[in-house]
């Protein structure tokens, strides 16, 4: 099933850092470099959200990054998929009690809903940092859902 979903077309991902500590970001990079090499699964990192199928979102969404995050997600074509990577993005992580951020993607999603920006599928990859293997799993799960749901 996995290979079917993936072979249909390649998945372009876009990396969106919303104030993370870099831990998860370097793990995303790790997934792209030779040892994990996600490009073999057709997963390709692109530089613009306009080209992306999936946004890899890390960090607890700090208020200062919020405008960029909103714009980037809005620029993505439908169906939009977001993969919330790391404890920060899933549930605010160790920061969740603090003040200058939204505390993870769930709250951002509520905000986006109120602005009429629909996120079609969301995947969650917990862990601090999330392992590269878990990130690969996450993308595969997300894509399987996305393909299944939209066709």
């Amino acid at each position: 099933m996995l290979s079917m979903a993936l072979s249909r077309r390649s998945i372009w991902v876009f990396h969106l850092n919303t104030g993370s500590c870099n831990g998860c970001d370097i793990e995303i990079l790790d997934a792209l470099t030779p040892v994990h090499d996600v490009e073999r699964l057709g997963i390709k990192l692109v530089a613009s959200p306009r080209h992306a199928d999936v946004a890899l979102l890390t960090g607890p969404v700090t208020v200062k990054t919020l405008p960029m995050v909103v714009r980037a997600l809005r620029a993505m074509p439908r169906p939009r998929a977001v993969l919330a990577i790391g404890a920060c993005a899933c549930g605010g992580g160790i920061w969740h009690y603090s003040y200058p951020h939204l505390g993870g993607f769930e709250n951002l999603r509520k905000l986006l809903d109120s602005m009429g920006i629909v996120i079609d599928v969301v995947g969650y990859v917990p862990g601090c940092p999330a392992r590269p293997e878990a990130i690969i799993d996450g993308i595969i799960k997300l894509v399987t859902r996305k393909e299944g749901g939209s066709r």
């Binding site: 862990g127 999330a130 799993d137 996450g138």
Partner: peptide, 12 residues
């Protein structure tokens, strides 16, 4: 285990 990835928030 590192496998708690999911597309359903409640699963967490």
């Amino acid at each position: 285990s590192f496998d708690r990835t999911t597309t359903n928030f409640e699963d967490l």
